[in-house]
Design a protein around this nucleic acid. Structure first.
Length: 334
DNA sequence: TAATTATGACGAC
DNA sequence: TCGTCCTAATTAC
């Protein structure tokens, strides 16, 4: 269940581990058999992330478009070169675990959860979702692990290089596109701070929001207005701006709208760096450490219905907005 | 074992 | 505004 930061991190994983390699592609589940057949044997040549979508380019002008939706995820297994700036050795991407990272159950050479990799980029042997049948690990970690890894559950698409396995399950979209179709898809999306020039993005975002009668709480979630914001970032950004979710876009002061964009630039960067939707970044070092360690200490309002507002003590309200849960403080956000 | 939940988005009224 | 699709982890019974 990724918002924009996860997709950018996933794209980086593909850049490091899949791009530049020839893949064996298959659809164990069968629902993407035709597409997998087209990809099979091709070299991945580039990857792009825009908002919540990832585009993987293969030789021959073939593109794979993936949108994870609410429960989609990529599982990486085998030898995975971790990015130093990706603070964790990444296995499962797209989902969050209870600690709130977008990594789930990574097993290192010692067979224990490994959530930290600091320093220069390095090769990390990772294994996700060890089954009961998994035998003991050798000195070198996963020498005795099966290769390729056994398929577990509903795998829509498996991309296999000599050393790395990437399994896709549960995506809301997984399709092949021509270069023109990729362009058309991206053209419909609102600005993404990591794709567009921040200043240009700010202009686009501001001018659209300031024209609409739509509640700002809906506009932030509208991927045609701004890319990558989901239900968590939406609630948190509105609180950080002390903004009433129901305020029509055109009634929000221009400077406030610009500040919303700049806040998204900031939060997305932190999210990509840490792998966590850390929205309480204005904290001292100790509070930051605590927030990073405990998922429950990480948000101002998200998932805090009925709990006292961290600023004023008023009970956080939960309401439905466009069939999604919206959390906000009726006192702070007037 | 079943119900519930989830960080999305689309199409039919 | 509603129903629908995608899947697995967590919680309730």
């Amino acid at each position: 269940m990724p918002e924009g930061h996860s997709v950018h991190r996933i794209a980086r994983q593909f850049d490091r581990n899949i791009v530049g390699r020839t893949v064996a592609a298959s659809s164990p589940q069968g629902r993407f058999a035709e597409g997998a057949a087209v990809l099979d044997g091709r070299e991945a040549v580039a990857v792009r992330a825009v908002g919540k979508q990832m585009f993987l380019n293969f030789e021959g002008d073939v593109w794979l478009r993936v949108h994870l939706g609410m429960y989609g995820a990529w599982d990486f297994a085998g030898e995975v070169l971790a990015d130093a700036t990706i603070a964790s050795a990444n296995g499962r991407m797209g989902h969050t675990n209870q600690r709130g990272t977008d990594v789930d159950r990574i097993f290192d050479a010692a067979g224990e959860n490994s959530l930290t990799s600091i320093g220069a980029p390095r090769r990390t042997r990772v294994r996700v979702r060890m089954s009961e049948q998994t035998t003991g690990l050798g000195d070198d970690g996963l020498d005795e692990a099966e290769w390729p890894p056994p398929v577990v559950g509903q795998v829509r698409l498996r991309l296999l290089t000599d050393v790395t396995c990437a399994d896709l399950r549960g995506p809301t979209a997984c399709q092949l596109q021509t270069p023109d179709e990729v362009q058309a898809t991206i053209a419909k999306l609102g600005p993404d701070p990591l794709v567009d020039e921040p200043a240009a993005g700010e202009e686009r975002f501001t001018s659209v929001v300031r024209r609409k009668p739509t509640p700002i709480g809906l506009l932030l979630m509208d991927q045609n207005v701004v890319s990558g914001i989901g239900n968590v970032y939406r609630a948190e950004m509105l609180f950080r701006a002390r903004l009433n979710p129901h305020a029509p876009g055109r009634d929000v002061p221009e400077e406030t709208v610009r500040e919303l964009w700049r806040d998204w630039v900031r939060l997305l960067a932190i999210g990509v760096e840490t792998g966590q939707m850390m929205t309480m970044d204005d904290l001292d070092a100790e509070a930051w450490r605590r927030a990073m360690a405990h998922r429950d200490d990480r948000h101002w309002v998200y998932h805090r219905a009925g709990l006292p507002c961290r600023v004023c003590g008023t009970a956080i309200v939960l309401e439905e907005m466009a069939a999604r849960k919206l959390y906000w403080c009726p006192n702070c956000q007037r």
